[in-house]
Simulated scan of single mutants.
Amino acid sequence: MHKLSLAFVATLATLALAPVTAPLAQSTKPPSTYEPTPETSCADPLGFLRRVYERELDGVSDPARVWVRPICDGEEVGSLRHAGNAGALRARIAGNAAMMQALDSKNFLPDDVVGVKMTAPDSVILFVHRFLH
């Protein structure tokens, strides 16, 4: 009877831990990877950007702390220019040497920036989409 009780407890413990470990095994992509499904848009990440103030961009002075991330690459999305939070920031981006160097290294212009995400006081992700100029 004692062996039966131990086997029963071991089975319950295994079943109790299964839901906790299953989600960990399913995710193989890094959390920053976003792949749109037919129900979503490639521009969906832009809807989750918080407001960035011009003075925050002044803290970025090293081009190595600027990440340029293309979004909706290869898709024609006319309304994308207004979907993000970069509208009022493009002039400040154009005046920032570090951001311009990072954009230029990837062949983008300040007008291509559609979203801005501050990741630290001195680092930023610029979401870009190549528009016809």
Rank of each mutant, 00 (worst) to 15 (best):
M1V: 10
M1N: 05
M1I: 12
K3C: 05
K3E: 14
S5T: 12
A7H: 02
F8P: 00
V9W: 13
L12D: 06
L12Q: 01
A13F: 11
A13C: 13
A13G: 10
T14F: 15
L15H: 07
A16D: 00
A16T: 14
L17C: 10
L17Y: 02
A18K: 03
P19R: 03
P19S: 06
V20W: 01
V20L: 13
A22R: 03
P23C: 00
L24K: 05
A25H: 01
Q26R: 14
S32Q: 14
T33S: 12
Y34M: 06
Y34W: 06
T37D: 13
T37I: 10
P38D: 12
E39L: 15
T40G: 13
S41T: 15
S41A: 15
C42E: 11
A43M: 14
P45H: 03
P45E: 08
L46T: 06
L46N: 04
G47F: 01
F48C: 00
V52Y: 02
E56D: 08
E56C: 03
D58C: 00
G59I: 08
G59L: 05
V60T: 02
S61T: 15
D62P: 09
D62F: 11
P63Y: 09
P63K: 09
R65V: 07
R65Y: 08
V66Q: 13
V66D: 10
R69Q: 15
P70K: 13
C72E: 06
D73R: 15
E75G: 00
E76I: 11
E76C: 02
L80A: 11
R81K: 14
G84R: 05
N85K: 05
N85G: 03
N85W: 04
G87S: 09
G87L: 13
A88I: 03
A88V: 06
L89R: 01
L89H: 02
A91S: 08
R92C: 01
R92A: 14
G95C: 05
N96I: 09
Q101K: 14
D104G: 10
D104M: 09
S105H: 05
F108N: 06
L109A: 10
L109M: 05
P110S: 03
P110T: 05
P110A: 09
D111N: 08
D111V: 09
D112V: 07
D112Q: 07
V113A: 11
V114E: 09
G115Y: 11
V116I: 09
M118P: 08
A120N: 07
A120C: 04
P121A: 13
D122Q: 11
D122K: 12
D122T: 14
S123W: 03
V124I: 04
L126E: 02
L126I: 04
L126A: 09
L126D: 01
F127I: 03
H129S: 13
